[in-house]
Amino acid sequence: MITYIARRMLQALVVMAAVSFISFSLFNYVGDPVDNMVGQEATLEDRAYIRQVLGLEDPFYVQYGRFLQNAVQGKFGISYRTKRSVTEMIVERLPATLELVFVSALIALGLGIPLGVYTGINRSSWISKAVLTVSLVGVSLPTFIIGIGLIYIFAVHLGVLPSSGRSGTVDLGGWRTSFLTVDGWRSIILPALTLSLFQVTMILRLVRAEMLEIMRTDFIKFARARGLPERKVNYSHALKNTLVPVITIIGLNIGGLIAFSLITETVFQWPGTGLMFIQAVDFVDVPIMAAYLCFVALIFVTINLVVDILYFVIDPRLRAEGGH
């Protein structure tokens, strides 16, 4: 178990090293950083001085080493646009994104798994067919259309929910949460729903496919032949066996939700890291882009590690030391 986790962490380190190298390259090879920092009236001497101070004359590996050293301590420099510490900006906007992702993941799992189990067991009922047809709409519509559609219905037409922004937040020691006020909840519903719709469909279809597969296995037949009630067969034997592939996909998707919530955040003007990244791209704010890249990679790597450990918890076959 420990060697297994150690090996996974080693792999994670390799991934992080590769990503950090790419973000570092962003600094050096996407335009001249000095050009991005100073105005047009700066003299050649000024530029040379800045280069000297920032260490841009040093050999490549020294610069990379310095970047790594800073990155490990959470320092990614100063935003070109706002002149504020990049780390500070990310930390400030992180709660918005994490809460959005948390709520939409809850919706995705809470709807996707039960519906997947239901449609997997009652394959030919009309409810299953209806659910599958509707879910097809969920996958085929792009996120921004769904977002705009929801805004039109709930904000413009019915006027029951706010159309954009994040209001009603409460500061809990640096973490601004929307979970404590009605206003906060009202403003998170639409973006979370938008973000989760695609995930609901995918989890539903995945769980359904896995359930269909498992229901054909001998141990399900044997469980029935032992007289176990349907509820027990379906949930304690079948569902648990579908979890390994489902967790893999869910893990990757939650990473994806965090990293790519930018469309939803843009549509709803949600002040999260995704929106910050979009704005950074507009202004070629390289330090933010580089930091965001590292941050997203870190999230993916962490989630993957968690998924790997979950496999271990769920599937005893993996626990066997040197198992087959």
Binding site: T217, D218, F219, K221, F222, A223, A225, S236, H237, K240, N241, I314, D315, P316, R317
Partner: peptide
């Protein structure tokens, strides 16, 4: 049943 390798739930 025939196949003892698949007749038991592997996770329990």
């Amino acid at each position: 049943f025939q196949d003892p390798l698949t007749s038991l739930d592997p996770l329990q």
